[in-house]
Simulated assay, not measured.
Amino acid sequence: MVAEDVLDLDGSGIGCLEHSHRGEVFDQVLSQTESLTRNVLNVPSDYSVLFLQGGATQQFGLIPMNFSGTGLSAHTNTGVWTTKAIRAAEQFGPISIVFDGADDRFRHLPDPTNLQIPEEASYFHTCANNTVMGTQWKTLPSPPASVPHVCDMSSEIGSRVLDWNSLDMLYAGCQKNLGVAGTVLLIIKNDLLHRSKAPNPFNYQEHASAGSRLNTPPTFGIVVLRRMLEWIQEHGGVKNMALRAEKRAQLLYDAIESTQGYWQPHASHACRSVMNVTWHGPNPEAEFQFLHQANELGFSGLKGHRSVGGLRASVYNAADEVACQKLAELIQTSSRSCK
């Protein structure tokens, strides 16, 4: 469908890369994509949906630019991306780190009910799934009612049912589960949106008032996002995506555990990600040999992030169970052949 859109968008005779972002055809694309977003993610009516340029890292600066007040912002430091978000927030005011997993190499997450989040915080920031470390909040923290919860959901959006009672704003780079790089989906409660105070073109309220067209939006990315949301809807919705994710991840974790310690997961059991499965071998040579075997079978991208090392399988919505089963078999057999 996307290939067709590039050549002929919705029967207009003109491809999506050529259409004006202010023309009638793209008006319909935006309207349909917002409607699909609301339906697929069950977005409440008192939230606004924005489609922005860039990526999630860009939001690390825009969030404090818009919402840092005279007080501090609160953060959980659960990996690479939250570390970057904290560094960005420090440029705009004082911060409070209510959990820091650095000393444990970010292997675990805290009990979300035990976090001491300051009631005077201007906002509370989390990252739902940590791609590099392979950890994931199974239940998102809920800050005090006076503190807006802002969550980076780049690597799990569209793969879990959302509890909007615990979210005031989420943002996600679409390249993992919802499309292509360069597009950000941002969903924000209107009460928080109205507090935006950054100058143009960085002000969220201004983007909302302009219908995500304060400047030229990422038109191609929005077209792809529309098709991905349709695909999720056609395949059982987010509930089914969550079940698929759990099943794929469990295949891999069971395979790792079956090697009796030869391969070892990086993340603690209670917070293992269903999007990014991370593990280590007994030595770098065994990991190198595994990567070589995986490459021969057609797998790629299994080398762990440079800050962690080891191995990582990213099993986003597009991954199928058959591929995960084959990878699980490789994990089991390689524990014998790599010794």
Rank of each mutant, 00 (worst) to 15 (best):
residue 56 A to D: 12
residue 297 L to D: 06
residue 131 T to G: 04
residue 13 G to S: 09
residue 94 P to N: 15
residue 219 T to V: 15
residue 1 M to R: 11
residue 14 I to R: 14
residue 181 A to T: 07
residue 244 R to C: 12
residue 93 G to K: 01
residue 35 S to Y: 09
residue 319 A to M: 11
residue 4 E to K: 12
residue 301 G to T: 08
residue 44 P to C: 03
residue 8 D to C: 11
residue 90 E to W: 02
residue 339 K to F: 10
residue 336 R to H: 15
residue 92 F to N: 02
residue 282 P to F: 01
residue 295 N to V: 02
residue 130 N to R: 05
residue 104 D to H: 08
residue 316 Y to G: 06
residue 315 V to Y: 00
residue 158 G to T: 04
residue 215 N to M: 13
residue 66 N to W: 05
residue 144 P to K: 10
residue 18 E to A: 12
residue 138 K to N: 10
residue 275 M to V: 08
residue 306 R to S: 15
residue 203 N to C: 15
residue 61 G to H: 13
residue 278 T to C: 13
residue 332 Q to A: 13
residue 71 G to Q: 09
residue 237 G to C: 03
residue 29 V to C: 02
residue 125 H to A: 08
residue 7 L to R: 15
residue 195 R to E: 11
residue 294 A to S: 11
residue 254 D to P: 04
residue 212 S to I: 05
residue 73 S to K: 01
residue 78 T to L: 00
residue 136 Q to M: 14
residue 83 T to W: 03
residue 176 K to I: 01
residue 1 M to A: 12
residue 24 E to M: 10
residue 106 F to C: 00
residue 72 L to H: 11
residue 178 L to D: 03
residue 77 N to M: 13
residue 300 S to P: 02
residue 218 P to C: 04
residue 138 K to T: 07
residue 233 Q to C: 07
residue 227 R to C: 04
residue 121 A to K: 04
residue 90 E to C: 11
residue 73 S to T: 14
residue 261 G to F: 07
residue 5 D to K: 11
residue 312 R to A: 11
residue 160 R to P: 00
residue 165 N to C: 06
residue 294 A to P: 01
residue 295 N to Y: 14
residue 3 A to H: 12
residue 254 D to T: 15
residue 172 A to Y: 07
residue 207 H to E: 08
residue 307 S to T: 14
residue 231 W to E: 12
residue 59 Q to N: 15
residue 147 V to P: 01
residue 288 F to Y: 12
residue 121 A to Y: 01
residue 108 H to Y: 10
residue 19 H to R: 13
residue 285 E to D: 14
residue 265 P to A: 12
residue 332 Q to L: 05
residue 215 N to Q: 14
residue 120 E to I: 04
residue 12 S to R: 07
residue 300 S to E: 11
residue 310 G to I: 03
residue 161 V to Q: 11
residue 248 R to Y: 02
residue 220 F to H: 06
residue 141 P to R: 03
residue 119 E to H: 11
residue 294 A to R: 00
residue 1 M to W: 08
residue 75 H to N: 05
residue 122 S to W: 03
residue 157 I to S: 02
residue 258 S to E: 10
residue 149 H to L: 06
residue 117 I to E: 08
residue 323 A to E: 09
residue 200 N to E: 15
residue 235 H to G: 02
residue 157 I to E: 00
residue 329 E to R: 09
residue 294 A to E: 02
residue 309 G to D: 02
residue 254 D to M: 07
residue 133 M to K: 04
residue 243 L to G: 01
residue 251 L to Y: 09
residue 193 L to V: 03
residue 268 S to K: 11
residue 124 F to A: 00
residue 318 A to N: 11
residue 62 L to E: 05
residue 80 V to S: 13
residue 183 T to A: 03
residue 256 I to V: 13
residue 78 T to D: 07
residue 1 M to C: 08
residue 116 Q to C: 08
residue 72 L to V: 07
residue 336 R to V: 14
residue 300 S to I: 09
residue 185 L to H: 04
residue 124 F to N: 07
residue 295 N to K: 14
residue 172 A to R: 08
residue 70 T to E: 13
residue 326 K to M: 12
residue 167 L to D: 02
residue 278 T to I: 09
residue 52 L to S: 00
residue 104 D to W: 01
residue 198 A to C: 03
residue 211 G to S: 10
residue 330 L to K: 01
residue 328 A to D: 07
residue 14 I to D: 06
residue 295 N to R: 15
residue 87 R to A: 12
residue 275 M to I: 08
residue 268 S to V: 03
residue 260 Q to N: 15
residue 237 G to E: 06
residue 325 Q to C: 06
